[in-house]
Amino acid sequence: MPNLRSLRDRGDVHSPQEAVRSTNAHNHSPPWHEHIQATIKLHWAQRGLCAGCGRSVPRVGRFSPDDPMAPTFDHVIPASRGGRKDLGNGLMKHQSCNVKRGDAPPTGCDLIWQALVAARLALEGHAKA
């Protein structure tokens, strides 16, 4: 199965939708979990930057899930505080940045990132996840 980096480097992937389709086309197992698909879309919308620290985040599948640098789906409004489990309430962060925030309320930076990601996804027609 080709990884997302090789697909993008070849010019085969230009959007998060294409990334999911291209990867699933080579995967004969059941469809990916919704958070993984959302994380792929967020990686694209955030241009590969962590919403917690601003550093580069590797693509999904390049690290084990417990690696501190692994990409994760962070709920802007934590589920424990009534936040939805959908793309509109998510940001991509390193595992360590996500754990550090825990279930605290969103910071001003989280809300700015959320607005930026929503605008980018809407412009590309990927606002619905």
Rank of each mutant, 00 (worst) to 15 (best):
Q95M: 10
W44G: 05
C50F: 12
V76K: 04
E18R: 09
G52H: 04
P106M: 14
M92Q: 04
P105E: 15
T107A: 05
A129G: 15
H35K: 12
P68S: 05
F63V: 02
P105Q: 11
V117R: 06
A119V: 03
D74I: 00
P105K: 13
R120Q: 04
T23C: 04
R59H: 15
A45I: 03
K41W: 05
D86S: 12
V20R: 03
A122Y: 06
P31Q: 11
Q95K: 12
L4S: 08
I112H: 12
K41S: 08
P106R: 13
S64Q: 12
P30Y: 08
L111Q: 11
H75D: 03
G125D: 10
G52M: 06
P68L: 03
L123M: 10
Q37Y: 06
P58V: 15
H75Q: 07
N3C: 12
V76W: 02
H28G: 14
P58M: 14
H43C: 00
A70N: 14
G61T: 10
N98I: 01
P78S: 09
S22R: 08
P31N: 08
R59K: 14
D110I: 00
S6Q: 05
V76C: 03
A38S: 08
W32N: 10
V57H: 03
V99H: 04
M92A: 03
R8F: 05
G102H: 01
N24K: 03
F73N: 01
C109R: 15
A119R: 11
N98A: 01
L7E: 06
L116H: 05
R62V: 15
A70D: 11
C97E: 01
V76I: 15
M1V: 15
A25E: 10
R47N: 13
R59L: 15
V117E: 08
I77R: 15
R59F: 15
R8W: 09
R59T: 14
V13H: 02
A127I: 08
D12H: 08
P78F: 10
H94Q: 06
R101F: 02
R62K: 15
A129Y: 11
A70L: 07
R81D: 05
T39S: 06
W113I: 00
A119P: 00
V57A: 08
H43S: 09
E34V: 11
S80T: 14
Q17D: 13
H94M: 05
T107G: 05
N24V: 09
Q37P: 01
I112T: 14
H94A: 10
S80M: 05
H43L: 11
D103H: 11
R120M: 03
A127S: 06
D110Q: 02
E34C: 07
N89R: 04
T107V: 02
D74V: 00
G102Q: 10
I112S: 13
K41F: 06
C97G: 02
T23G: 02
A118T: 07
D74S: 10
A115V: 07
G102Y: 01
K85L: 14
C109S: 15
V117S: 08
P16A: 14
I112R: 13
M92I: 14
A19C: 06
R5A: 11
V60S: 02
G83V: 12
A122G: 05
P78H: 09
G90V: 08
Q114E: 07
H126V: 04
P30A: 08
D110S: 00
I77Q: 15
P106W: 14
F73A: 00
V20E: 03
H75M: 04
V117H: 09
P65C: 08
G11V: 01
S29F: 02
